[in-house]
Amino acid sequence: MTADIDALRPGFENPAPDANAVFRTVLTGFSYPGRILALPIAIAAPPRLNATAAAVLLALADLDAPVWLTADVDTAPLRSWLQFHCGCPLTALREEAVFAVANPDAFGAVDGLAEFAPGRAESPETSTTVIVQVADLRADGAVRLSGPGIAAPRSLAAPPLSPAFWAVLRDNHARFPQGIDVILAAPDRMVCLPRTTLTEG
């Protein structure tokens, strides 16, 4: 497949500092789960990806990190963009993915969330980090978060995610040390939910 260079959106403007800024935001996110963090850079996102999801992939995906795309976002221009900027393999198998991009369905659930790689008992780090694209992130929701990195229990609203999504994440938490890690990506902000975070409500 040849990329249509004219249609390609640019990647990071300053690769080293931009990748660092996005990584530090994700690191802070996983260190303080539930904290709503602004995307620190501006980026022209490719079709079907929001800027936060695009920035996380640019910062962290490469030839060692296969990416899985949900059918909603899996377009030829996005494939070209990922392969040009990240050089990452694209996989059709959820259990092979280091990163995955998923969208909530019409019921506010994420289909097949439990089928991503949970890692193995002896190597739980070989699990998928799932980027879930959401419309908004607010600290006033019904979902209660607790666990490492959370000094006092936090609240979170992540429309359009529904209780069905949070129920899967609660089961995921119970699998510790195995389990997926989740990045909720709103267009201009993110919340990171490692497997250690207990989600209730």
Partner: peptide
């Protein structure tokens, strides 16, 4: 180099997720 940093950064994020 940036690729080495990405490899270390991915390891760091998993390390934080599995204390």
């Amino acid at each position: 180099d940036e690729q080495t940093k990405r490899m270390i950064r991915r390891a760091l994020l998993k390390a934080v997720a599995i204390p």
